[in-house]
């Protein structure tokens, strides 16, 4: 009898652990949230509206127009960079290559890198940069848009707006941002830290599993 109780307790414990693990498999949702109250057929319900990435218009390294439409129903990772950046961008590119190599054959996942120096980073410059980095195909797009629009867009990704310092060098954050199929922010990672990028690679898998359920 005692053994039975012990076994039952153990089983309970084990399942509790498993339950906890299952909870960890959803990622948080970041950004502002607005409650919206709806009254349908006399019943009041409150929904939460999450911050989403607004529409944007850009061109990729192949000269194709890319807007939010081209990312419909996709999980993607975004960052902000410029090709001549001497400081953190080479490290970010190196780490993003790990993400690229992990998902380059996965049609559900994309990477987009917005240039914050569109004056220098033309389509040709971006194509050459991608080639040298060893990036081909349509998994990783390097996007050029209007400078003001890109700077404004960076704020929707919760990234610090880039600044220009005295040397005409751009100062900006090295964050990688994970966006889900509903255009919501599901993770931010320091793109200069390999451990955080390893997390990102794992979180993409988690996010894929989550959207597979729906």
């Amino acid at each position: 009898m005692k053994i039975l109780i012990g076994a039952a307790a153990l089983l309970f414990l084990a399942s509790a652990c498993k339950f906890n693990a299952a909870q960890n498999t959803t990622l948080p949702i970041y950004g502002n949230r607005t409650p919206v109250t709806n009254t349908v057929a006399g019943k009041t319900t409150t929904d939460t509206l999450y911050q989403t990435i607004p529409d944007f218009k850009t061109v990729n390294q192949y000269g194709d127009s890319i807007s939010s439409k081209n990312l419909k129903g996709q999980i993607y990772v975004a960052d902000f960079f410029f090709t001549t950046c001497p400081s953190i961008c080479p490290v970010m590119a190196k780490n993003m290559l790990d993400v690229y190599n992990a998902y380059k054959n996965d049609k559900d996942v994309k990477i987009i890198s917005y240039t914050i120096d569109p004056k220098h980073d033309s389509v040709n410059v971006l194509k050459k940069y991608a080639d040298k980095l060893g990036v081909a195909g349509n998994t990783w797009w390097f996007l050029q848009g209007k400078k003001e629009e890109i700077y404004k867009l960076s704020e929707s990704y919760l990234v610090r707006k880039p600044e220009e310092d005295a040397k005409q060098m751009f100062i900006h954050d090295g964050y990688f941002i994970l966006i889900d199929k509903q255009k919501r922010i599901r993770g931010t990672y320091d793109g200069t830290v390999p451990d955080q990028v390893t997390h990102l690679i794992a979180d993409i898998k988690t996010l894929k599993a989550e959207s597979g359920q729906k």
């Binding site: 001497p86 400081s87 953190i88 080479p90 490290v91 190196k94 290559l97 980095l133 060893g134």
Partner: peptide, 15 residues
């Protein structure tokens, strides 16, 4: 290190 890497291996055809 940011360009040439902590292992001195550079970065693809860029560095």
């Amino acid at each position: 290190q940011n360009c040439h890497g902590n292992d001195g291996l550079g970065l693809s055809a860029l560095m």
